[in-house]
Amino acid sequence: RFQALLGEPVAAQGVRATLRERYLRGLGAARGRPTRFCLRAGVCVEAVFGAADVGAMAFQVDALRTPLGVQAAALLRCTDVLAYSFLLD
């Protein structure tokens, strides 16, 4: 991955930082909010957003509503998740 950085214009660092910071703030905003996760194979579940790990491997969620009942706490694999959404007020 870092080979690609060698030819990068200097401006890319600042832009990368801005993009990443906004993203991290977005994750912060999601915490504690009811969130709808769209997974592969048409599976959609609702849960309360708990936390995301930095390496983008998993989401920790609470009160996950599965077809078989509610799981108090769960991990969703990032590779299984296609998209998620939540409301801000």
Partner: peptide, 28 residues
């Protein structure tokens, strides 16, 4: 610093709540 803060919350939640993966078998 922002990443460390976020990771801390994730790790703490995992320690406290011992969440399991759902679904058990990965979709991918």
């Amino acid at each position: 610093a922002m990443e460390a803060a976020m990771q801390l919350i994730f790790d703490r939640n995992c320690d406290k709540k011992q969440p399991k993966y759902w679904p058990i078998i990965p979709l991918k």
